[in-house]
Design a binder for these strands. Structure first.
Length: 763
DNA sequence: TAAGGAACTTAGCAGTCCATGC
DNA sequence: GCATGGACTGCTAAGTTCCTTA
């Protein structure tokens, strides 16, 4: 790897939410922000030092939130005009500069096992698990599969054996982690009592279909619809201009959506209010419409209070009442939450249809507040096997369509009314269909590892190209690789929040500094990425990249595209030529996983205690989260909970000094008396000191971890970017229980990795 | 071949659950 | 038994990528 590829360590983003409220909050939290930045600095410093390959370093500077402001409405027209022109230019350029040699159509989208097997060098690891290699029992091919379901495999026959095994495992773990185990055990017992759990199916030991089909048999019961609207009790009034007013059901229902969000900042936003009012009026009778002309005169207070009281009442319900609800939910889950796919009972991810409500777009979303309409059976397309028991629509209704398409994975779909996009009901991440895809994703990233040096050499070469489009492509790829930026598709203006990724960066999103402090060629990034999360980073780049950027910026307005001769389609086509299956997002997966692996190697210390090891893991995970810019709003109770923890630490410290004093006294006593009794006392006191020291250490580690995690979200990278086999191998190598790293749901999702990865696994 | 659509992954938020400590 | 707070889960928005259509 070249010294230039400082993945994960040179990053110095200092992000924040892009919303007005956040900006506002940020201003008032400058001090806190500086503190946070300092923490992050330290974090990065650690990463930097720990990675010898990563020589490049960057400087961290506190982000000026005000810089985040985007062009105001007056420049919108100008920008739009420019966009139009740029679009035309891009099209023209891509036609003009089309490579002479057309790409051969050799791309196999769905990597079939056969195709993978035919590339032994690159795909070493794909079927590398011993278990997998052993499974030659499945020599029959897919054509031989029956479409009809055989008996669905459930726990029955192997149940006793399996449970025995689980119990043994429980006992083993008890020593290491009794508390957590208690929880899991309880949950397991509860389930055992209630239902027949499906046998853990090792789909990863079986072959995959090679014909592009996703399943052979699919049966399910259709979705669960949102409960119908229940009218407000008469005592709960809505007021207009200070006077009570009874609304008709449709208008009242939409009013309740607003009332439910009254405490939320959304309802203070102009766009939200405007969109809401416009859509609300569509639900009103003409009489209501003529009366209700000003949202500011509407008083939803009583409605809001009513919902709060309801929520409070729910919390105060008796155990029995709560249990009843739980049972009903469980019943629904059992009935609708599973499907049968190819002889196996699989959990459905989202079997409930999204209820109606007000659209909560993120960031400055132009459609926030619009009415998300109620989805009815006649909006739903059902997908299942022809020969399965077809799901029945609710009495008196019809499905929009009944489809039997086994080239897709979804069970039901509908078109939502805000963006006009399609929503799906799909399987849970623990399902075969999702797991296979996930596994495949990491295998593609591992293949990238093998050719990344070549790709890097090539794009560095391309920085010198005579063709502008190639230089742009090469610089963009460098950013995607080095900074783990997203591809950045073009978006329809006015339809969504103004966010960008690499290919859609605009001139206004970067600043160039030929010299900054003691560094040369520094690029400052400041833009809103996915979910309107701010990406802020200052990074020194190679001279050639810097010169190219200067060139790309020439004669452009702030709102012009930085890469005006590039889009994600062009980039991905190019990547496809470099490696089969390579797309921009593979770089994110690759860099995230390789960073985790490197960090774990650097941070782990064999002598560490278990909590210290877990802290090391979390730090490695954090390094990735920082690289990928995964942020979260600090928990509302953060300061308070930190204070509480600090109090505990202080108390523990006092306790420790008291215990030490006692030990000292006991030692003195023993020195004087030399009897057995005083000796035993010394031993007891010593043990007490030891125990308190351990408790203190645990609390301190907890405080450090929590503080470092304040604004970093670890979950996203853990679930989507980190090859789970790296974590599993690390756990096995350092004898860390997997439960310390993955919770139950995560263990289910990564069952394939937990089963196949040994301690020597290399990404 | 561009544009739009479909399918699927990635993302943060918020409500709920449940362990913990008093 | 209760309050607290962190972990977990569900939800659904917002991306990416590939496919289809005109």
């Amino acid at each position: 790897m070249s010294a230039d590829h400082a993945h994960g360590n040179s990053q110095v983003n200092c992000g924040s939410k892009g919303s007005d409220a956040h900006k506002h909050k940020d201003k008032h939290k400058d001090k806190e922000q500086r503190h946070k930045d300092h923490k992050k600095d330290k974090e990065r410093e650690k990463i930097k030092h720990s990675n010898s390959e990563h020589k490049e370093h960057s400087e961290k500077k506190h982000g000026d939130k005000e810089k985040l402001k985007h062009s105001n409405g007056s420049s919108e027209k100008h920008r739009e005009k420019h966009r139009e022109k740029r679009r035309e230019d891009k099209i023209k350029t891509s036609q003009e500069e089309k490579p002479k040699k057309e790409k051969e159509n050799g791309y196999v989208r769905e990597r079939s096992p056969a195709a993978i097997k035919s590339e032994p060098e690159e795909d070493n690891g794909f079927y590398s698990s011993p278990q997998h290699n052993k499974t030659s029992k499945r020599e029959h091919h897919d054509e031989g599969f029956e479409y009809k379901p055989k008996k669905v495999k459930t726990e029955h026959d192997k149940k006793a054996k399996k449970r025995k095994h689980e119990d043994e495992e429980d006992e083993e773990d008890e020593d290491i982690k009794p508390k957590k185990k208690t929880k899991d055990k309880k949950a397991a017992e509860g389930k055992k009592g209630k239902k027949e759990e499906e046998e853990k199916w090792k789909w990863w030991e079986e072959e995959r279909a090679t014909d592009g089909s996703k399943w052979r048999f699919l049966e399910h019961k259709g979705p669960v619809f949102a409960p119908p609207y229940e009218a407000m009790p008469d005592r709960v009034k809505f007021y207009y201009d200070g006077k009570p007013m009874k609304l008709n059901a449709p208008a009242e229902e939409v009013a309740t959506f607003f009332a439910k969000m009254l405490d939320h900042e959304y309802t203070t936003k102009d766009i939200f209010r405007k969109n809401f009012f416009k859509d609300w009026r569509k639900e009103m009778t003409s009489e209501e419409k003529s009366k209700l002309s000003d949202l500011n005169k509407c008083d939803f207070g009583e409605m809001s209070e009513y919902f709060k009281a309801q929520s409070e009442a729910r919390k105060q319900m008796s155990k029995a009442e709560k249990q009843k609800i739980k049972e009903e939910n469980e019943r629904l889950l059992q009935e609708y939450g599973f499907c049968i796919m190819d002889n196996h009972k699989e959990r459905i991810g989202n079997f409930r249809i999204e209820p109606p409500g007000l659209f909560r777009g993120r960031g400055d979303h132009p459609k926030m507040g619009m009415l998300k309409r109620r989805i009815r059976p006649q909006d739903i397309i059902i997908n299942c096997s022809k020969d399965s028991k077809q799901p029945k629509p609710p009495p008196g209704t019809k499905w929009k369509e009944l489809r039997h398409d086994n080239k897709v994975t979804w069970l039901a779909s509908w078109t939502e009314n805000i963006q006009g996009s399609i929503k799906y009901i799909m399987l849970n991440p623990s399902s075969r269909i999702k797991g296979e895809k996930d596994w495949q994703k990491y295998e593609t990233a591992r293949r990238l590892k093998k050719c990344v040096d070549r790709i890097r050499t090539q794009y560095r070469e391309d920085w010198k190209s005579k063709e502008m489009r190639i230089r742009q492509r090469a610089v963009a790829l460098y950013f995607i690789d080095k900074l783990a930026l997203r591809a950045g598709n073009e978006k329809e203006e006015g339809e969504t929040a103004d966010t960008v990724g690499c290919c859609s960066l605009r001139v206004e999103h970067i600043k160039l500094y030929p010299k900054m402090d003691d560094q040369e060629y520094v690029v400052e990034f400041d833009f809103l990425g996915k979910d309107s999360i701010r990406y802020y980073n200052k990074i020194p780049v190679e001279k050639r990249v810097f010169k190219n950027l200067q060139l790309f910026l020439e004669n452009k307005q702030p709102e012009d595209d930085l890469f005006d001769r590039l889009n994600t389609s062009i980039l991905n086509k190019h990547l496809q030529e470099l490696m089969d299956g390579l797309t921009a997002k593979v770089f994110r997966t690759y860099n995230a996983s390789i960073t985790l692996q490197q960090q774990l190697k650097e941070l782990a210390c064999p002598e560490d205690s278990l909590p210290a090891k877990v802290l090391s893991y979390n730090r490695a995970n954090r390094a990735v989260a920082i690289l990928c810019n995964h942020q979260r709003a600090p928990p509302k109770t953060f300061e308070k909970s930190m204070q509480n923890l600090q109090t505990k630490i202080d108390e523990k410290q006092n306790q420790l000094s008291a215990a030490r004093k006692q030990l000292k006294a006991a030692k003195a006593e023993h020195k004087a008396s030399h009897d057995d009794k005083s000796k035993r006392v010394v031993e007891l006191k010593r043990k007490a000191v030891q125990r308190i020291e351990e408790q203190l250490m645990k609390l301190q580690v907890q405080a450090t971890d929590r503080e470092e995690n304040k604004q970093i979200a670890l979950g996203t990278s853990k679930l989507n970017y980190l090859d789970p086999r790296i974590s599993v191998a690390w756990c096995k190598k350092w004898v860390v229980p997997i439960e310390k790293i993955y919770n139950k749901t995560q263990r289910e999702k990564f069952a394939w990795a937990i089963d196949m990865a040994e301690k020597d696994y290399e990404f």
